[in-house]
């Protein structure tokens, strides 16, 4: 079945350079630098990436960072807690907007 997302395409990520090499090179250099251990450990960065992958709902990123967090020694509980952080922020972002709704309700109500 044809789908918009194909897990085989994840392996082709590097091929984006075929259409625009200088920008791709800059991006991958930057990407590599970002994920190196720094003030945060590589493991912490991987968990952040896993959470963000879920927030932006990128199937490629979810697959890549599920494997990566496991290869950084994380377990399922830690990974799911990271996803809950993403979910809490997404849910909170919706709910905090309800203050606008409440403001408007009050504005137009007797």
């Amino acid at each position: 079945m044809k789908t918009y997302y194909n897990s085989e395409d994840l392996k082709k990520f590097g091929k984006i350079a075929d259409f625009q090499k200088p920008m791709a090179d800059k991006f991958f250099d930057y990407y590599g630098e970002v994920f190196k251990a720094g003030a945060l450990t590589a493991r912490e960065k991987s968990l952040i990436a896993l959470a963000v992958s879920h927030a932006i709902q990128c199937p490629y990123c979810i697959e890549a960072y599920t494997v990566d967090t496991m290869e950084k020694g994380c377990d399922e509980e830690q990974m799911m807690e990271a996803v809950h952080v993403a979910a809490a922020i997404r849910g909170g972002a919706s709910l905090v907007h309800s203050t606008q709704m409440m403001n408007k309700v009050k504005e137009i109500s007797m």
Binding site: T41, A42, R43, M70, E71, G73
Partner: peptide, 10 residues
């Protein structure tokens, strides 16, 4: 499972 080990020191 089917994945590589984490950094030994970490």
């Amino acid at each position: 499972g089917a994945f590589l080990p984490a950094s030994q020191s970490d």
